[in-house]
Design a protein around this nucleic acid. Structure first.
Length: 215
DNA sequence: TAGGCCATCTGGTCCT
DNA sequence: AGGACCAGATGGCCTA
């Protein structure tokens, strides 16, 4: 999907996202950015799981230990639950704000036209993925020319696509627009004269390539 | 009005 | 126990 200029919303980015990783320590940011979900946490579809307990199926049943704390009245329990929920909501909101801040930072280093509408989340991720791939190819070409080798004239097959390395769902994440796009990143590189030896990153400047080339 | 995108709430699970 | 993470649900805003 092509971002529409008028899609900008009044409440798109909260005040917390206006500064780099606000309210998040480096540790938090690193954790958010780098912590892959542990294999044990990969979740399937819980729809058929009774009571939403699909992940608990492989879990040891928790031993109940009672009697340590004072029995609380229903009112006190309810108040405690509400308080915990409220705190959890705040944390969750913060977490999502941090995630959005990271996405904003990512948008910030991606080449876009100033008047481009803000990339959506999925567009940002796809763009970044393809952009990194394009830069990698640029470096490869630069290396070849540096060592006096013939600049490779990679076929599209040789170049592969930015999706090659990911057996996952990257290709399925492609939007209909990008799937129907006229230029793949590989084609864009080949068509960019600056990428013939010596390779020139100038081709990766905004304007050299259309945004849609990377999406 | 339908569909896309988003923020938020919520409950479950896992980890420390 | 409490925090982090996740996915589903919900509702608002916007555009075609």
């Amino acid at each position: 999907m092509v971002p529409h200029p008028s899609r900008a919303r009044a409440v798109q980015v909260t005040h917390e996202t206006e500064q780099p990783f606000p309210g998040a320590s480096d540790v938090e940011v690193t954790r958010v950015a780098s912590a892959p979900p542990s294999p044990t946490r990969v979740q399937g579809n819980c729809a058929e799981a009774e009571g939403g307990n699909c992940r608990g199926a492989a879990r040891k049943p928790r031993a109940r230990r009672g009697g340590r704390s004072r029995p609380k009245s229903e009112l006190a329990l309810s108040k405690q639950r509400r308080s915990r929920r409220k705190k959890a909501n705040d944390r969750e909101r913060n977490r999502m704000h941090n995630l959005n801040s990271a996405l904003d930072a990512l948008r910030g280093v991606l080449p876009t036209f100033p008047d481009d509408a803000k990339l959506t989340k999925i567009e940002t991720l796809r763009f970044a993925h393809n952009y990194i791939w394009a830069l990698t190819q640029t470096l490869r070409i630069a290396d070849h020319s540096l060592y006096g080798l013939e600049p490779p004239a990679p076929s599209c097959e040789e170049l592969g696509s930015p999706d090659d390395g990911s057996p996952g769902d990257w290709s399925s994440l492609y939007s209909p627009v990008s799937q129907a796009g006229s230029l793949s990143p590989a084609a864009s590189l080949e068509e960019c004269p600056g990428l013939q030896a010596p390779a020139s990153p100038a081709c990766l400047r905004p304007g050299a390539l259309a945004l849609s080339d990377f999406l």
